Simulated assay, not measured.
Amino acid sequence: MNAGIRERGLPRLRHWLTPLALLALIAAVVMPAVTLPRHTFSYIVTFDITQSMDVEDVSLNGVPVSRLKFAQAAMGDALGQLPCGSKVGWSVFTGQRTLLLLAPVEVCNNYDALRVSLDGIDGRMRWTNWSRIAEGGVYSAVRVAQDVGQGAAVVFITDGQEAPPVPPSRALMRDINSARIKGWLIGVGGDQPAAIPKTNGDGNQVGYWQAEDVIQVPATPGSDRPAETHEELSELRGQYLGSVAEQTGLGYRRLWTTTALGDAMVDQRFAHREPVPTDLRWCPALFALLLLAGRFAPDVVWEWLHACRKFIRRLVRRVVPASDGRRPPAGLS
């Protein structure tokens, strides 16, 4: 019986697998992209590039790095998590203004350009050394996103340090419509106050900021007790950022790991469904691979499959009644 299988059925079936695999491979090469609806995202990611973001109090692969470098690494990881059809753009913040560097572009077709431009963001782009996050940066980032359109949400990455500092009694936000704002306020930095590097216009460190070099938090009006402050040092102002996020309608998340940013950016609350060209060439390619695997499978595999087929047919004949309503005799099977 095995010889009969090898001489008749097996060679004939195996020979057909090769041309079928060839046709599948040709289809994988020439097959165009198929437009399918899917969930996508659109973001303008704003990086705080003030000098406090140069503090090296976070680590990447066990090596201390600056907050800005850590944020860039997290964003690089997030690019790989966003589905094709999503769009991402870059902007930077210092002073009271957010400056758009790159309008949102599709992440898969422009992945290399996005990575290179992301790595190029650093403190040398800074045009001033003071900053206002709540009263300038967030407003400006939202305006930029609205001007760009495309339903872009905001991702604002900062350590929360402002210079000069905002007095504790001062209102953080005025007349802001939280219903028009969507996105994330992302906090990055350590919990312990650390010295802030002082850099020149070329981005070279020339020392550290001292207490007499910066403006400290003023005393609360009506209080004779001076405020305890150390604005020459910096740590993540998470409580402050959480308050700003609550008042603006943004979500707040701390950047504990490089994967946290990507997890936030694929939040389904910020997804929108639209038709996207989808590459399905892997389907015929996989089919060709299976055909070739079958073509060159050992004879014992084919004999086992043939035996399984015979067993199933025999089982069906025993269970399913014949057309005349009688079961076939057991010996005929």
Rank of each mutant, 00 (worst) to 15 (best):
S243G: 12
L292I: 11
H272L: 13
H39A: 15
R317C: 06
L185E: 04
I26N: 06
V154E: 03
Q239A: 15
L101E: 12
H272S: 15
Q239G: 15
Q210L: 14
Q210P: 05
H306F: 15
V88S: 04
A322K: 09
V65K: 06
H272M: 13
I121D: 08
R6D: 13
W282G: 09
G160M: 08
D279F: 08
V276K: 04
G249R: 02
M125V: 01
T220V: 11
Q239N: 13
L10S: 10
G136P: 10
L68Q: 04
P218S: 06
Q51F: 13
G242H: 10
A33L: 11
S66F: 02
V316T: 12
L286M: 13
V214F: 03
L185H: 00
S91K: 01
C108V: 02
E303W: 13
K69Y: 04
W184M: 01
P221M: 11
V116L: 14
G136M: 03
G242I: 00
R253W: 04
I5D: 06
W130A: 11
Q150D: 15
I26R: 00
S59E: 14
S333K: 13
V214T: 04
W256H: 15
E231H: 08
A103K: 09
Q72R: 06
R269E: 09
R313P: 02
V105T: 08
C283T: 10
T278K: 03
S91G: 05
I215Q: 14
T229A: 14
L17M: 08
P83D: 01
L332W: 11
P221G: 03
L22V: 09
V206D: 13
N177V: 08
L305P: 10
I44V: 14
P168K: 02
K198W: 03
V58T: 05
P64G: 06
L118D: 04
A27W: 09
I312T: 12
V92H: 05
A78M: 03
S234A: 07
L114F: 09
Q247S: 10
W130P: 05
G249P: 13
V266R: 11
K310I: 09
G95P: 04
Q72V: 02
D202L: 14
G62N: 01
W209R: 09
D324K: 00
L250M: 10
T46E: 07
R313Y: 10
G4M: 07
Y43E: 07
Q205N: 10
G207E: 09
I157C: 04
G149Q: 01
P226C: 07
I181E: 02
L100G: 07
Y252N: 05
L292P: 12
V214W: 02
L102G: 11
Y240T: 03
F93Y: 06
W256Q: 15
L292M: 08
E56T: 11
T98A: 05
R8M: 12
D147V: 00
D112W: 13
P298K: 08
P64L: 01
S52T: 09
L25V: 05
D279P: 12
